[in-house]
């Protein structure tokens, strides 16, 4: 009984497409009325919400019909959504994969249906990278390097740095560490004197910095893998009688709104924006893929670096 119900449920989208096909056939003559499915991972952070809004807004502006699905943090929901899009016969699918593995079968289904899949913000591990059109994402290594370059320029290549790492093992933590280390490698007098994990949390950033500022009073700079830890560290530095922003330079990554407020107040020196506004790039890629063009396997979104002097002007534009 249950099996039959499931079968019927699985078939429903097919039945629906059968009815929908006629209208779609008529539409295809006018090239700019695409139907696109967007399988979003969830809405767990402000960053994620900004990403969703960017894609929805871009779809409206380009007159694209967007079918949106929120997987609420579960891969099985996301796979179901992609299957649903395939069954509905969309022209292309935008996928923000929750995890890297387990996508092979459903991507093959999309390939068989000749629907291009554009990945945003995270890659997938598949045996054949022809299964997706392109990946549009930030380069975490480059972000770390940009932070290092800024610090090198600002300090003249001389700094005692305390690094606040993200959650051990997380891709952004590994890559942002790697990028920063590459960036300071050319400057022998820039040293990381201590490096501990603040777990990407504001409270941990503060707690770790309270300990490290006492153990290493000679610090001159703090590099945090995300803004939240930097904001916690700033409070700890103040409590220790240091002036964050002047005595101790603070650089971080992400570019959240609170970071801009801290920059305006002169406590944070710079932040490298990890851009969630992937909409324009994603739809450029979608249009090319639908037109049959071959795209590079990875499109890196240009991340911008914001300095304290730009903060006041940029603050009203911050969406997340």
């Amino acid at each position: 009984m249950k099996k039959r119900a499931l079968l019927l449920l699985a078939l429903t989208p097919f039945l629906l497409t059968q009815c929908g096909d006629g209208s779609k056939g008529g539409d295809s003559s006018s090239s700019n009325s695409l139907t696109i499915g967007f399988a979003q991972a969830g809405a767990e952070s402000a960053w994620r919400t900004a990403e969703t809004e960017s894609i929805t807004r871009e779809a409206e502006q380009r007159g694209v019909t967007l079918k949106f699905s929120d997987a609420q943090g579960k891969q099985e929901n996301q796979i179901k959504a992609v299957r649903g899009f395939i069954a509905q016969g969309v022209d292309a699918i935008i996928l923000a994969p929750i995890v890297e593995t387990g996508w092979e079968p459903v991507l093959k289904e999309a390939q068989r249906a000749e629907i291009p899949v554009v990945l945003v913000d995270r890659g997938v591990q598949v045996s054949d990278d022809g299964l997706y059109a392109t990946l549009i994402a930030s380069d975490f290594v480059a972000e770390g390097q940009m932070a290092a370059d800024w610090l090198a320029k600002k300090t003249g290549g001389k700094a005692n740095i305390i690094e606040l790492q993200g959650t051990p093992g997380a891709a952004p933590a590994i890559d942002r560490k790697k990028g920063f280390e590459q960036g300071i490698a050319a400057h022998p007098e820039m040293k990381i004197i201590a490096s501990q994990s603040g777990d990407f949390r504001r409270s941990q950033g503060k707690e770790v910095m309270e300990a490290l500022v006492k153990a290493h009073p000679n610090l001159t700079a703090v590099y945090a893998h995300n803004d939240d830890m930097a904001l916690g560290a700033i409070q700890a530095l103040e409590a220790a009688g240091k002036k964050p922003g002047t005595d101790v330079l603070v650089v971080s990554i992400d570019g959240v709104k609170d970071a801009f407020i801290a920059m305006k107040d002169g406590q944070l020196n710079c932040t490298v924006e990890c851009n969630p506004l992937l909409g324009p790039n994603a739809f450029d890629a979608v249009e090319k893929a639908v037109a049959g063009e071959t795209l590079p396997k990875k499109t890196v979104v240009q991340d911008r670096l914001f300095e304290a002097s730009q903060a006041a002007a940029e603050l009203p534009n911050r969406q997340y």
Binding site: E44, S45, F200, R201, R202, S203, K206, L231, G232, Q235
Partner: peptide, 11 residues
């Protein structure tokens, strides 16, 4: 109170 912010996701 310690971090002057309510961090619902992580606290």
């Amino acid at each position: 109170g310690n971090i002057h912010a309510a961090d619902s996701a992580r606290v």
